[in-house]
Design a protein around this nucleic acid. Structure first.
Lengths: 142, 142
DNA sequence: CTTGCCGTAACATTTTCTGTTACAGATGTG
DNA sequence: CACATCTGTAACAGAAAATGTTACGGCAAG
């Protein structure tokens, strides 16, 4: 399982919900979203469940149930989606604690944490600059 | 296996090589580096092998063998290390091709690729801003 | 009450990383 | 030249995580 596709799945689902709403379709079921993403409905329910807990989508239960956006596409950024699906850091520290008797082993982790933190902030800035409305616009013109 | 620690291992090794050189130690063996990182020497050889192919370190074979930096610590950036160890993208696209009969399924991948490309560039900018000399300085003051 | 769909548990599969052992090859030293 | 030392790499085991899949309880509209 190469890279993490959770942000991709969630963004795809949200973009699809935004387009459906613009076309007058109130809600979409997990089956309908899964048909577009081409995966299992349970994957979609798990992803949309994360987004619901973050307040980005709403769900209706019972017969005629389905999902819809909880706010305008312009007001949902990819950063919010990233946080909602639990984005993981691109770089990890040592799996086992380094040798603390070595000066490098002792000081490298704080130094790396600082650098990796700057990288994470750069990622967040880029993601905060793109909304679901942006994604929808770029998607339908492609 | 949570995140990718390859950049961490490689940076640790390079920082340790830089400090050893400053202390007058010409080369370090993979065993000596492994003792600081607290892992198996083969892991270190694999990592330093990547760095050697990228021209960042040199290796001496035979008896009295070992590794040394191929250039000054100021001239090795974390971006070069990232490329040397084959850094993977933080976000992946769909595992299976989306449904191309859906407008979102058709257009989402180019849109995501564009956004993810901007994120990747932001990461590279940050990594290019930090050198092994920077890491060594931050490490020994911690 | 029936039907349709969500929520979630449980499990199989796949992939990747890390760690480990083993051994061939290279090279300085005596 | 023989030897000791260390690299380069293959082969394999184990662990962890993501994804996909089946199954089933629960909720709500008609």
């Amino acid at each position: 399982m190469a890279a993490n596709s959770r942000l991709t799945i969630a963004t795809h689902a949200l973009t699809w919900l935004a387009l459906a709403h613009r076309r007058g379709q109130e809600v979409l079921t997990s089956d309908q979203v899964a048909a577009s993403v081409n995966t299992n409905p349970v994957i979609i329910r798990r992803s949309l469940g994360d987004l619901r807990r973050a307040g980005l989508v709403e769900v209706r239960h019972g017969a005629g149930a389905g999902w819809s956006l909880a706010r305008a596409p312009e007001e949902i950024t990819l950063l919010q989606v990233y946080d909602a699906v639990g984005g993981e850091q691109p770089f990890g520290l040592h799996h086992t604690e380094p040798n603390l008797e070595c000066p490098v082993g002792r000081g490298i982790r704080p130094a790396l944490t600082q650098t990796y933190g700057r990288v994470e902030q750069a990622i967040r800035r880029e993601l905060a600059d793109t909304s679901i409305a942006d994604m929808l616009r770029e998607t339908v013109t492609n």
